[in-house]
Simulated scan of single mutants.
Amino acid sequence: MKEIISIWRESLHTILDLYERKRGSIWLFFPFLFVFFILINVACYWWAIYTAFPYYMQTNEASHYVKLQIPVGFFGALFDSLSFFVTIWIIRRALATKKTSEYIFHLSLDLIIAFLATMWVLLVFTFGGWMISIWENSPEQLSERGVKYTNRAVQAIKDPTGRENAKNIYFGLIMGVSAALPSCFHLFLFFSSIFKKFKKKEITGQTEDSKSPD
């Protein structure tokens, strides 16, 4: 296991070093990062809409959902961009640790970001929908929208197998794709390290076999 963690650390350090060398000025990097996450969030939004609730676009509220992509993209990108730098800080802290347990603990902190992203999605749809209602000259009560989305979340937890609840859970998972990227990245490096270890072991075994006398 120590060898796997060592390979994992080395891979993570290499990627962090590449990022720091290639990033350039933060004032130039951040706008590109922000736009990237806007595109990711908007793409996930439409993916979720058309796979979970395609009939929404066949109703009189279709224009509402078209407009809703604006706050979803903007506020989603805001969260993801800021959490990106938090992830970089976490990685630096993880690489500075000596113990394996501390290293894994630090990287596991990205799971908190994923959880906070779920709460952020509820907030964005509540606040964003309220903003759109004002835009459409049919203002809603912000508190009422908050209660509506909170009730949906609670209902989904209580009965996740219900048809509409399952759709809402799926919708939330798709909207959380960007926030889950750091955790997926760490898992990818972990499994990649396992693969490299066994590949190295296999090559070493083949080398020893070739050197052994017939």
Results as ranks from 00 to 15, higher is better:
W120F: 12
L142A: 07
R152P: 00
E144V: 08
F115D: 03
Y149T: 08
Y149Q: 07
H106V: 00
A114G: 03
G128N: 09
S108T: 07
V124N: 08
L123M: 12
W130H: 13
L122M: 09
I112P: 00
E144I: 03
A114D: 04
D110G: 14
V147M: 11
S138L: 04
L122V: 07
E136P: 02
W130F: 13
E144S: 11
R145F: 13
F115S: 08
G146P: 01
L142R: 12
Y149S: 03
L111R: 05
H106T: 01
T161D: 04
L107G: 08
R152E: 08
V154C: 01
W135M: 13
I104R: 10
G146A: 03
T126W: 02
S108I: 03
L107W: 05
E102G: 09
L107C: 03
N151H: 06
L111F: 14
S133F: 06
M119A: 14
W120Y: 14
Y103C: 07
L123C: 05
I113P: 07
S133C: 06
R152A: 10
N151I: 00
R152K: 14
E136A: 15
V154G: 02
E140I: 01
E136W: 06
L123F: 15
I104A: 05
M131T: 08
D110N: 15
Q141Y: 09
F127D: 07
S108E: 07
K148H: 14
A153Q: 01
E140F: 11
T161M: 07
S108K: 04
I104T: 05
G128Y: 10
R145M: 13
G128P: 06
W130V: 00
I113W: 04
Q155E: 15
G128E: 06
R152F: 15
L123T: 12
E144F: 08
K148W: 11
E144W: 05
V121H: 09
N151S: 07
G128K: 12
K148E: 12
A156R: 00
T126D: 02
G129K: 03
A156D: 03
W135E: 10
K158I: 06
I112A: 14
G129A: 05
A153K: 00
A153H: 01
M119T: 09
L111V: 06
F127Q: 04
I132H: 06
I134R: 13
S133G: 09
A156Q: 00
M131A: 09
T150D: 01
T118V: 02
S133V: 03
G146T: 01
M131G: 01
L109K: 12
K148G: 01
V121C: 09
F127E: 01
M131N: 02
M131I: 13
L116G: 11
Y149M: 14
I157Q: 06
M119L: 15
W135T: 08
V124H: 08
S138H: 08
K148L: 14
L123D: 00
I132N: 04
S143P: 00
T126E: 05
W135L: 11
I134S: 04
L116T: 05
I134F: 15
P160C: 03
I112Y: 12
T126C: 03
K158M: 10
